[in-house]
């Protein structure tokens, strides 16, 4: 088995390759090698969610996975969800509802919420689902499902309003 094989994967649809020091986290690769500064480094220990990106459809903490482990994966960052000219529904809703103050947690919040809405559509239950087989998207459900994304400014009520708005717009 070869040591330190390269990883070939895609970031926002663009093919890329990493081969180098295996210690590089996906987060550092995205920011420092790809220049995608939307994804933020908060705690760097999987506790704050600021680094959340979407890998093969799943939201993950990019600080707790290595660049070399992404071989064959499709990574989507905040830059892949929308652009200033063409905001995603959630991005637009965060602006409309003032879903941030400093904005540092916002890319992670939006990547996380984008995948969370899909998880709900798939019928995934959560800790607060009264019925494991029929989760209802109540405010408590959305709060629980977003508990992996901290906001030190405490913009939670507006984040919740933005997510709810985007979910209703999608219906």
């Amino acid at each position: 088995m070869p040591l330190n094989p390269p990883a070939n994967f895609r970031v926002n649809g663009k093919a890329c390759r990493y081969s180098g020091d295996a210690r590089r986290s996906l987060l550092d690769f995205l920011r420092d090698d790809m220049g995608l500064y939307g994804t933020k480094k908060g705690c760097d220990h999987g506790q704050c969610g600021a680094c959340t990106v979407i890998v093969d459809g799943s939201r993950v903490n990019s600080c707790l996975t290595l660049a070399v482990m992404q071989d064959g994966c499709e990574v989507t960052t905040i830059e892949g969800l929308g652009s200033p000219e063409a905001l995603s529904v959630l991005q637009r809703a965060f602006v409309t509802h003032d879903g941030f103050q400093c904005g540092y947690c916002t890319p992670g919040q939006i990547c996380s919420a984008t995948a969370m809405i899909e998880e709900l559509a798939q019928g995934w239950p959560s800790h607060v689902s009264a019925d494991l087989n029929n989760p209802v998207p109540s405010d408590d459900e959305l709060r629980e499902r977003m508990s992996g994304n901290l906001c030190r400014c405490g913009a939670y009520p507006n984040i919740l309003a933005a997510i709810r708005d985007a979910m209703e717009a999608a219906r």
């Binding site: 999987g46 993950v60 996380s112 499902r145 992996g148």
Partner: peptide
């Protein structure tokens, strides 16, 4: 399982 960690961590 749902009582543990966060959704991002449970996905990995």
């Amino acid at each position: 399982i749902l009582a543990g960690a966060s959704p991002q961590l449970r996905n990995r």
